[in-house]
Computed example of a mutant assay.
Amino acid sequence: MNRQSPFANLTPVVKNLLIINLICFIPFIVLSDNNYNDLVVKNLGAFYFNSPYFKPWQPITYMFLHGGWAHILFNMFALFSFGPILEYAIGPKRFLNLYFICGLGAILFQMAVQAIEVHNLIGSFMAPFHFSLNDPTIPDQVKAIYYSPVVGASGAIFGVLVGFGMLYPNMELMLMFVPVPIKAKYLIPVYILFEIYSGFGQAAGDNVAHFAHLGGALLGFIMIKAWGYRGS
């Protein structure tokens, strides 16, 4: 008996996004942490718009980098699981637009929140370029914003998840460690509420860009609504 490959039914956009993300993960595997951060992340990760490391292409390139195995496996598993169904429903062109616009909206939303934080801390949206990590006049939160990049496809993935939930609200999903199927219309809003809680109550040591996730989710909601799709 011939067994069909689990990748046989992948839609073209999802398949190519998976391949590109996996290729972009190769430097993480082959380089040391310091070389990876210096050569890849400092150039292609997304830094705050006034950071000395910011470059205009970063709002696109950041979504193809990942900071570790758990990060890329979670994102690619979500893309593999939900992406093909959504791509079948709205078509390859719109799915690609949704993915990139949600990814771009995610980092812009994150930067907007960071700008508010910077303004609240120093009274301006832009700190002087010349400050160093040892400068006692600059709060540590501002230093973290200026010198900590955002990487990952999570913002785009959240847009895909929201789009999937809006089109297939009654589809039952199984979660790891939860033996009961949960409908998408319940699960995904709970996930969004968790991100809101985590974003506003971010604990020390939590380096997840929760507001980027929320930005991607918001753009996904707006685009599906604007295109006029309805749930089944």
Results as ranks from 00 to 15, higher is better:
A203R: 14
N34L: 11
Y147V: 07
K15H: 09
P189F: 07
H66F: 13
V113Y: 06
K55Y: 00
A203Y: 01
V113P: 01
H213R: 14
L214I: 11
P92Y: 05
P84F: 00
I60W: 11
V142D: 00
G199C: 14
G220N: 05
D38I: 10
N35A: 15
P189Q: 09
Y186R: 14
M223D: 01
N120D: 01
N97T: 13
F164L: 05
P169N: 06
N75H: 05
V160Q: 02
G91T: 07
F74I: 15
L39S: 08
G152L: 10
N75I: 01
G105N: 07
F131I: 13
P128A: 11
I29P: 04
N134M: 08
M63E: 07
F158H: 15
L218I: 12
A106W: 00
G201N: 15
D33G: 08
I157C: 07
A203C: 06
H119C: 12
M171D: 11
N2M: 09
F47D: 03
N120E: 03
Y99T: 07
M174H: 03
S124C: 08
M111R: 10
I101Y: 03
A153T: 04
D140L: 13
S124G: 05
L18Q: 12
P52L: 09
N50V: 03
V162H: 03
M76P: 00
F177E: 04
F49I: 14
F200Y: 11
W57P: 01
I116L: 12
G220P: 02
V162M: 08
K42F: 00
H130G: 10
G155H: 06
F25P: 01
Y48L: 08
